[in-house]
Structures are given as C-alpha cells and as structure tokens.
C-alpha cells in the first residue's frame, strides 16, 4: 500500500485518535466519523481527507461498515445505523442536506441501470436541468462515445454486456456533475480481465475531472491502483 495518510481509531487495540492537522477545504473530509448498529460500535473517530483527483480507499472485512459509511456520506443512510462526526465537501458540511443536493455521485457493485429506461435515457437521468435540447443530446452522445457505446443510446440496458453496463453507469454518474464520487466495490463482480480495464477507465475519468474519490473494496489490488490514502476498518 502506497500511502497511509489517514488513520482510524481501532476500538479493539485502543489506539488513540490521530489528530488530523491538515484539513484541506477542497475535497471530501470526514472528521471523527463513528458508526454503530444497535448500540454496538463499528468504528469510531474515523478521519480522512480526500483531495481533488485523489482516490482514497477504505478496506475491511464484510460487516465492518464500509458500505454503511458510503451510504452515510452520500445521504441515503440505512436507519439501522447511527453515525456521529461530520462530512464536509469543499469546506461545507453536507450532513444536513438531502442526498439529492449533496452532489456526491455513487457507483454501486451492480450497474443498477434503471430497467425501464433506454441506455441513453439512463445516462440523461442525471443531467442538470436547464440545458438546451441540443446541448443535452451532445452531452449524451459524447458520453456514449466515451463509454464505447456509440449508437447504443436506444438499447434496452438488459441487452448490454457486463462491461458496457458498468461504463454506462459511470457515465450516468459523471453527467450529473458530482463534486465527489463514491465507489462501492464497483469492480468486484466483473471478471479479472474486465476488472483491470474498467478500474483504469473509472480512475482515469475521476482524475481527469479532479474529483475527490472514495473507494470501498476487499481487493488490495484496487487499493494499490488507487494509489491514495488507505483506511483499514477493523473486523466487527
């Protein structure tokens, strides 16, 4: 693992909290975030800051609260979990905002393209309102081309291959113009050859747009490729 610039207080070893001195205002910052479920602590005092274009990784076994953490950050939290601490994006606390106003995009383990919309309509779902029709169409066409899906805008998402679906899902997320991106194990269900390719595709895009990015994964290879700060969550 290349760089460890963040730490989490491990409730088992009792390691003390590491004060986070350099909290940049640009990017995504977690300050003393803690999570518990049913009164049982999953982790406490998690501090992490992710700069623009940086890809931080959260690792840990199943049940450590990785996905719950992402849900909490983007604002679609499961009511079973309770969280403490604060989440700030570019210096503003987003805790009080509804998910729809946080501008934090998410890529899930499955592509989750909406089954009732065409591929193009899926990609257009996140486009900001107020664009002219030509502008909308141009952005959709560009995104389709970028994802290697030129001419497939009218297709049923169910007819795409796994890799095509994954790329379309990323395009959908990026066209919503997020200010940060969360990746919830989006590579884990792809087969090995596809995984490396898609990982590079995602990482290139978020770096190119200078998006602070937080990746949750089981796979050390993902963390190595991300080349950003790594946080290990303790087993539950």
């Amino acid at each position: 693992m290349s760089a460890v610039s963040a730490a989490v207080d491990d409730p088992e070893t009792g390691r003390g909290p590491e004060p986070c001195s350099e909290l940049r205002s640009a990017g995504l910052a977690l300050r003393s975030v803690s999570a518990s479920i049913g009164g049982r602590d999953l982790f406490i005092n998690l501090n992490l800051s992710v700069g623009p274009g940086e890809i931080a990784t959260v690792m840990g076994p199943s049940g450590a609260g990785k996905s719950a953490l992402l849900s909490h950050i983007c604002g679609v939290g499961d009511p079973d979990f309770s969280f403490g601490g604060s989440v700030a994006l570019n210096g503003h606390d987003v805790g009080a905002l509804p998910a729809s106003q946080r501008r934090i995009g998410v890529l899930f383990q499955d592509a989750l393209l909406f089954p009732h919309l065409s591929v193009g309509e899926n990609i257009a779902f996140g486009l900001p309102t107020g664009l002219g029709r030509d502008e909308r169409n141009a952005r959709i066409a560009a995104a389709l081309a970028d994802a290697g899906l030129t001419g497939m805008g009218g297709r049923d998402p169910a007819t795409l291959s796994g890799g095509q679906k994954a790329r379309a899902a990323l395009m959908r997320t990026l066209l919503a113009e997020p200010k940060a991106v969360l990746l919830d194990e989006p590579f884990s269900k792809l087969d090995a050859a596809l995984r490396d390719k898609f990982r590079r595709f995602v990482f290139d895009h978020v770096r190119e747009r200078a998006l602070p990015t937080l990746l949750v994964t089981h796979d050390p290879a993902d963390a190595a490729a991300a080349a950003g700060p790594v946080v290990e969550l303790a087993p539950p």
């Binding site: 983007c74 604002g75 509804p98 729809s100 989750l112 919503a176 997020p178």
Partner: peptide, 18 residues
C-alpha cells in the same frame, strides 16, 4: 425492490418524490 435504485436516483440529483 432493490433500495439502491432509489439511492442511485437521489444521488443523481432527483428528490425523493422524483
């Protein structure tokens, strides 16, 4: 229904009602 469809929609900027 997979709750992540709803999560995908709201993180793309749709309100709960949308």
């Amino acid at each position: 229904l997979d709750p992540r469809y709803r999560a995908a929609a709201v993180t793309l900027g749709a309100t709960e009602t949308q």
